[in-house]
Design a protein around this nucleic acid. Structure first.
Lengths: 242, 242
DNA sequence: TTGACTTATATGTCTAGACATATAATCGTA
DNA sequence: TACGATTATATGTCTAGACATATAAGTCAA
């Protein structure tokens, strides 16, 4: 179970080392917590320099497959099963990347003192000003999503000058404000009449909901709710894993 | 705009190089397509060996921030906004990680020759045997999700011996079969009567749907559809970004 | 037993070279 | 002009060292 390295081509040495270790981890031969061989042991086994095995191990550590501790060694990490990671950024980019015509429509934009509900949604305590934007994105003239967004002006004062009549707020924020953390919540709801009209679907039809909160170093930047037609839109994610 | 490196602490050199470049990319100073300095130029600028800048650039390439091309140089990549990454693995682990009591119930398990519909769903052409499993997951005795899964026995022959009466097929597969690629599709539907009964919700209530296909080196392993009560369950993802 | 000090060691970073390899650019030819 | 061969060059990988640093483990005293 350990001799055969079933590939016949010859990748570089450090990649082979990395793949060997990865396989042992993925097959469970080296379970979580297992201490993988020290660098000097791998150096002996593969007859190479330490930099070569170091590169292999560094990449495994970067991929969170192992954890490296000085003086102690390198250990197989528990797989991060419970956590879900979702990365979606910009609807305009998403649609144009699909080769479809992007359409944008500002439905309302209000600058106001934060209401209690606003403050709750943004998770801030102090009163301040916010911008509330509602808009619609479409792909090839078909409604794609409606967006309901709140921007904390005390975090993003520049946003007061943006009117979002042509550029969607998501794109604007992406280019003007670097974020450090985001949280997504996905759920499903039934379309109410207002939503149904905006998305051109029937009342009672299912909608996919994505709520996203974005922070920069513990400061809320924006909270956004995106509503997609549930039976037509699909959020596709493809990735490599282990 | 280029002198100050606002940090006062002294990280290692390659990390400083990496951070310097990353900052220029993220601020847009070096836009997508921009050719960043050659390794030998960075070597001159930072007065270090090539291996040091190579390590910095390799990590940036691994993070998909830059693309490296032999003879041509390293180029800032377009941000991968359009792509979504979703990582969900094991419902049992997910529920126990939340500190809730996990419950599992096998509703049906059938071993059969693959029907046309099965083959289509799995994306395979040859006839073969499959296992079809329907089961229910619950958290603290409340229905959490129903699972409808197809396993390709020609890819996972060992699965024939597993009866899934106690262990959910997702967990079993996770521990027995390493996968290399997965694709998720998220959508929303209205609960039909069978689903409504299994999830203990009203007919017509919204459901969150996750379809997942898993491959190992171009071979389909399994196709699974998970149905969650749309208004109660929430798929939460929190992550750091840049 | 506990706490403080010392030591051994695995990883972290770095160097100054080397050769391999893919490919952009150039040049020559049909 | 179009195509094929050559060359220059930036990256890819690797070596055999070096010193730095965090820390597990051992030592010794209170």
């Amino acid at each position: 179970m350990s001799l055969a390295t079933d590939a016949a081509d010859k990748p570089t040495l450090y990649k082979r080392i990395r793949a060997d270790i990865e396989k042992r981890i993925l097959t469970g031969e080296w379970p979580p917590g297992y201490r993988i061989p020290f660098e000097h042991e791998l150096v002996a086994r593969y007859r190479c320099s330490r930099m070569t095995v170091n590169k292999a191990l560094s990449e495994l550590a970067q991929a969170d497959l192992i954890e490296r501790r000085r003086r102690a060694g390198s250990f197989v990490r528990r797989p991060q099963h419970q956590s879900a990671v979702l990365k979606i950024s910009d609807i305009r980019a998403e649609i144009t990347a699909l080769g479809r015509g992007y359409g944008y429509e500002l439905m309302s934009r209000k600058l106001r003192a934060a209401t209690v509900a606003d403050r709750e949604r943004l998770g801030v305590k102090k009163a301040g000003k916010v911008i509330a934007v509602t808009c619609r994105h479409s792909a090839d003239n078909v409604p794609f999503a409606v967006e309901d967004r709140l921007i904390d002006l005390s975090s993003v004062p520049d946003a007061a000058a943006a009117d979002f009549s042509r550029e969607p707020p998501g794109s604007w924020l992406l280019h003007h404000v670097p974020w450090t953390e985001a949280e997504h919540t996905i759920s499903a709801i039934i379309a109410d009449d207002r939503t149904a009209e905006a998305l051109d679907i029937a009342i009672g039809a299912p909608c996919l909901v994505i709520d996203r909160y974005t922070w920069r170093s513990a400061r809320t930047i924006t909270a956004v709710r995106l509503l997609y037609p549930g039976d037509s839109h699909r959020l596709v994610a493809r990735f490599k894993g282990g």
